[in-house]
């Protein structure tokens, strides 16, 4: 194992400053600093605040990762960094730092796609990815369904959200219900006491003529807000647990139905979940249920690895090194809308 390269990974696409160390498929360190608390009162991530926090956290986070792994910078064989998609100013802090470490250490640099890294992280827990796999990536920033014939160089988009990301819908519904930001964990918690069938919220883009793999959460979000406002106007108490459970059920239903359909349509029998929303307990349970019924092997990283982190970037870097992919060029930059087809920028 020691002969496999040690990869240092950087992730700064949103509000998490992540630095990971991976050797082969082995996770050695996953250091994280987050500016989430600073965004809370704004009800969403403020790019400039995130970028400032990344800069201050960068070098200390590298050293926490090295300490956790019992490694030094001289042990590093390759450097990987998220070069997109994400918030431009935030991405650039990570890209510049990674370029400087790679240059100073004389090691190759891989600018990688954040979405592909969400898939790669599962290899740290469950070993080599079955290829092809279908990947469902859902977070505050993305909602994508991917076909992955070869994670190192062939990732194909099947569908994506046409409006809000799934995680944004959680944040906005949490706000309507008076729950804290980010909305995912408090809605998950409140939903445990509620009835998922209490309110029949709409399932977006599930009609026979709708795009089979695209998502829409804007209508659902609005329907929840209208329902809650109607109760409030009538002076009734809002059944928070039932609303949370019914909303969560609508999201999990659409996501898993489309993911299973993508597997069936493409003859693929492996599904990987990733992104912060994949930490949602109802989404995981429903995915397990439906995959089992359809004969699909479901792979879900632990919640800690589903959310943004540096280990996922190092994991993809490790995969690229072992696949013999050429490193990025010295003029690597950040691309806020890096297409999913581009695994290595």
């Amino acid at each position: 194992m020691a002969d496999q390269p040690l990869v240092l990974g950087f992730e700064t696409s949103c509000d998490e400053t992540g630095v990971g160390l991976v050797r082969g498929h082995t996770l050695l360190a996953d250091a994280l600093a987050t500016s989430m608390a600073e965004h809370e009162r704004f009800g969403g991530v403020v790019p400039e605040i995130a970028s400032r926090a990344h800069l201050e956290a960068m070098v200390p986070t590298v050293h926490r990762a090295l300490a956790d792994a019992g490694a030094t910078l001289d042990d590093v064989d390759a450097v990987a960094v998220t070069s997109g998609p994400g918030l431009t100013g935030a991405l650039l802090v990570g890209v510049a730092a990674a370029k400087a470490y790679a240059l100073a250490l004389g090691k190759p640099l891989y600018g990688v796609n954040h979405l592909a890294a969400h898939v790669a992280v599962d290899e740290l827990q469950h070993g080599p990815l079955a290829e092809p796999s279908i990947a469902l990536l859902v977070s505050g920033g993305h909602s994508s369904l991917l076909l992955v014939p070869d994670l190192a160089q062939d990732v194909q988009p099947l569908g994506r959200t046409v409006d809000d990301a799934a995680g944004e819908a959680f944040d906005k519904v949490a706000r309507v219900l008076g729950l804290p930001f980010p909305g995912g964990p408090p809605i998950d918690k409140a939903a445990r006491e509620g009835d998922p069938a209490a309110i029949g919220f709409p399932r977006g883009l599930t009609g026979p003529r709708d795009a089979p793999y695209d998502f829409s959460f804007s209508g659902l979000k609005t329907a929840v807000a209208r329902w809650v406002e109607a109760r409030q106007k009538a002076g009734e108490q809002v059944p928070v647990a039932d609303v949370a459970a019914s909303f969560q059920e609508a999201v999990a239903d659409v996501l898993t139905a489309k993911a299973v359909r993508a597997c069936r349509d493409h003859g693929v029998d492996h599904l990987v979940l990733g992104g912060g929303v994949a930490a949602n307990s109802r989404l995981r349970a429903l995915a397990e249920e439906r995959c089992a019924a359809a004969g699909i092997v479901l792979r879900v990283p632990s919640p800690r690895l589903c959310t943004d982190n540096g280990a996922m970037v190092a994991a993809l870097g490790s995969r690229l090194v072992s696949s013999g992919i050429a490193p990025s060029l010295p003029d690597l930059g950040a691309d806020s809308s890096l297409p999913i087809e581009v695994v290595t920028a």
Partner: peptide
Amino acid sequence: RVGVVTAAALAD
């Protein structure tokens, strides 16, 4: 920030 983080990382 690009310059500042580059300097910090190189020096580190």
